[in-house]
Amino acid sequence: MKNGTLTSDPYNLIIAGVGGQGNVLASRVLGGMLTGKGYHVTIGDTFGASQRGGSVMSHIRISRDASWSPQIPKGRAHMIIALEPTEALRVLADYGNPKVQVLCNTRPIYSVGVICGELAYPSLEDLEKWVRGLSEKAWFLDATNAAMKLGNPIFGNIMMIGALGGTGALPVDRQDFEAAVSRDMSPDRVQVNLAAYDMGVKMVEG
């Protein structure tokens, strides 16, 4: 869908995760890819308490010709990228609908309530079952583990962007990614990010 169009205008995408996962960076990179293609992009980040264990969420609005609100209306997400599996459910509760698609990293990050034994963390089987039941299509990827093979779990977010590229849900590809990251990164960092992107693509294709 390299020169394709948006399946909806605006196309509403949410990247959700936990402080420190690189949520904001991922939304910036994706935004850069789309702006490079001439799309109008609005990103609403909620990261006030992110460094302190809180949930982080970026609303990304993509449009051919208009700027949209930095908050997606309830129940109107087209795609949810969850860097952490329970965050997928948290987002689905407010922004999900029967047509939504979900790209989900399966590596859990426990909240303090879970760490201290007060709250239970659901099993991955249950999480997958719930997410599938609430989406038209869902992909589950162990991006963090794959990223650790590249030397740093933080590449997980770029892998998820690669996976998004692989789904063909948006009119962006590897070249757009390379162009976007090349603007701000040194060539060797671009290479490892490209490797992460490619691994992400493979994860949804395979």
């Binding site: 936990v18 308490a49 460094q51 302190r52 264990g53 809180g54 949930s55 129940g75 329970t86 965050e87 459910l89 948290r90 689905l92 509760a93 407010d94 999900g96 609908n97 029967p98 909240s111 303090v112 309530g113 879970v114 709250l119 239970a120 963390y121 659901p122 249950d126 999480l127 719930w130 039941g133 609430l134």
Partner: peptide
Amino acid sequence: EYAGRAQEAGFVGAPGRELTFC
């Protein structure tokens, strides 16, 4: 029906993330 299921899954499946010191 969807909204009900989504709310329930969010409630049961997404344990709260209380703020804490790093």
